[in-house]
Design a protein around this nucleic acid. Structure first.
Lengths: 334, 334
DNA sequence: CTGAAAGCGCTAACAA
DNA sequence: TTGTTAGCGCTTTCAG
């Protein structure tokens, strides 16, 4: 079943079929009706590849989501979807695995879908001018920025929280509760990811209080996985070091750690206070409820779309928006 | 940048470029090198749409995942990905939202990607012969079957647990611990989804013990969302009815419910025992750890791929595999 | 309002 | 080992 078959069956030309399928105005009611009848009867589904190929332009905005099954992104995507529609564009989303290359994916989408703009949801912090050469449309980095790359501010847009500052404030909160021996649970201390940035904020807070960084209190797991966090924490607890608080760089990791603490007979927050960053839904259902700095998801999605649409439609310059995370009191901070 | 440009720049024909790009053997080393150099230099990325269009066949197996951000699926997908590769096929995955139509998506993929077979991961239980007319390749329903539809067993394959039986056994487990007043937390009692099936298993267990169904102990929330479960449970608890155990049709919902119970001052499992079905990672990090019947994810992914490959390569008939869920003892059953 | 025909970028015979 | 060329299924001028 191709457009030709439909045309033959409906006794019209392929262009008429195409017009009907694309809701073009200049088609007689009769022709439209006949085409639709045939389309319906034969369950005809146009071939998107051919469609995209034939088309020269579109109102598509691409969204590349890195790390599938990240519950954190669900809300952002929903918000963006409706805002993109409202702005008269169509959202084309592609989810990729944590090991995939988002830039390559984006480059392919740009060409195939004739994108007008791109939103990277989650991504690496080290984009380079050279690598981004294959992207020729405006794009905004959402939830991250180019901290470790070499892009000029005018090359791209971004919407994210200040991860360094968020970590700083999280640790400050611990200090405010009298904690001095603070362990940190992170993915990598210098892996070029957000883990490194938040770790930097952690160190800054220590310095601010004149406390020296204790290597023994750094728990590095090389992963963002909850089970890896649990296992890593479990191993580390065997060392039986002295500490009264834990700063986990993500909610997910904090959740894994809390189970390890519980199993080690340490009560949270009486024996060990815990604080993290992210504010995912699941951590609100922990017992005790995790105290954490929440990323303002809806707001982030909204800002990203507005920014991109302004750039596409009004040629506005690139911009960088930093949003404030919100502390969820929770029950693990004491 | 099109294949033509590359051909011109490398001083070869487009077919030579195509051959190089597709790793065809009959290309001289020289030509290959020259083409690759140009491709590299100009950062050329072939247009997938055009590629698919030109191609007449492929070794693609499509995977349509329904309900994004379902942590439950991550493991299954990973397993399937590597098995599909190992079998000499390529996995083409498409994630769609909970409101999208997986059959339409599949139909489009079948045509565009020249799929050899399909795996529906998550989906509705009510496919009809009429709706499935647009699918002309073998497909397997993974984690669900056609309980409420009208497909013949020979029309499709499936791999799933016996949801009715799983629910039955979960409730039996509660009975074995002496519980008689059992509340049930479900999405819909007759929504044609897995919720209905598991509810049926629940009722069967009651009957088996000669206990009449108490409408007051049915908590229906019309959603699978954790927060909705929490809110629903919270409201229901205000009625202050007498019950000693809760059967939640999904881990996620059980997690929401546990928070409501905790806030209502009910201890789990001392005051209220809780059991569920699914076995997602997060529920293992609850406090107390959720007791639940785990779906054997890896095994399910493996069986689905094996089934499909056998059908595609050896023309074997469709088959229906029912796997046994495994009880995770946890700490909420007492 | 409708149709004919020229592509879109690529693959795959077929010839050479 | 290479190049030529005819599509793949659709969109989109351009005439009529």
């Amino acid at each position: 079943m191709t457009i030709k078959d439909i045309a033959r069956l409906a006794d019209v030309s392929v262009s008429t079929v195409s017009r009907v399928l694309n809701n073009h105005p200049d088609v007689s009611a009769k022709a439209k009706e006949r085409v639709l009848a045939v389309v319906d009867k034969y369950n005809y589904i146009p071939n998107t590849s051919a469609r995209e190929l034939g088309k020269s332009t579109s109102d598509n905005i691409g969204v590349v989501v890195r790390g599938m099954a990240n519950p954190f992104y669900t809300k952002i995507i929903t918000v963006m979807g409706s805002l993109i529609e409202k702005a008269g564009f169509t959202m084309v989303m592609q989810q990729i695995g944590i090991t995939d290359d988002e830039i390559m994916t984006a480059a392919m989408m740009e060409r195939e879908k004739h994108l007008q703009g791109l939103i990277f949801l989650g991504g690496k912090l080290d984009y380079t001018k050279e690598k981004m050469q294959c992207i020729n449309i405006p794009y905004v980095c959402l939830t991250f920025n180019n901290q470790y790359g070499n892009l000029a501010d005018s090359d791209y847009s971004s919407v994210c929280i200040d991860d360094n500052q968020a970590a700083y404030e999280a640790v400050e909160a611990l200090f405010n509760h009298g904690h001095k021996k603070i362990a940190v649970l992170l993915s990598g201390a210098c892996d070029g990811s957000v883990s490194q940035v938040r770790f930097a904020g952690f160190k800054r807070a220590l310095q601010n209080h004149g406390i020296e960084l204790d290597e023994n209190l750094i728990i590095e797991i090389n992963s963002y996985n909850i089970t890896d966090a649990y296992e890593g924490m479990k191993q580390w607890l065997k060392k039986d070091l002295d500490f009264t608080a834990l700063f986990a760089i993500s909610d997910n990791m904090a959740m894994g750690a809390m189970k390890a603490l519980r199993e080690a007979g340490k009560n949270v927050p009486e024996d060990v206070a815990v604080i993290a960053i992210d504010g995912i839904e699941a951590s609100e259902y922990m017992n005790p409820v995790l105290s954490t700095f929440c990323q303002p998801m809806e707001e982030m999605g909204r800002e990203a779309v507005n920014l991109l649409v302004d750039i596409i439609e009004e040629g506005k310059p690139n911009k960088h928006i930093t949003l404030k995370p919100l502390l969820r009191a929770g029950e693990t901070l004491k």
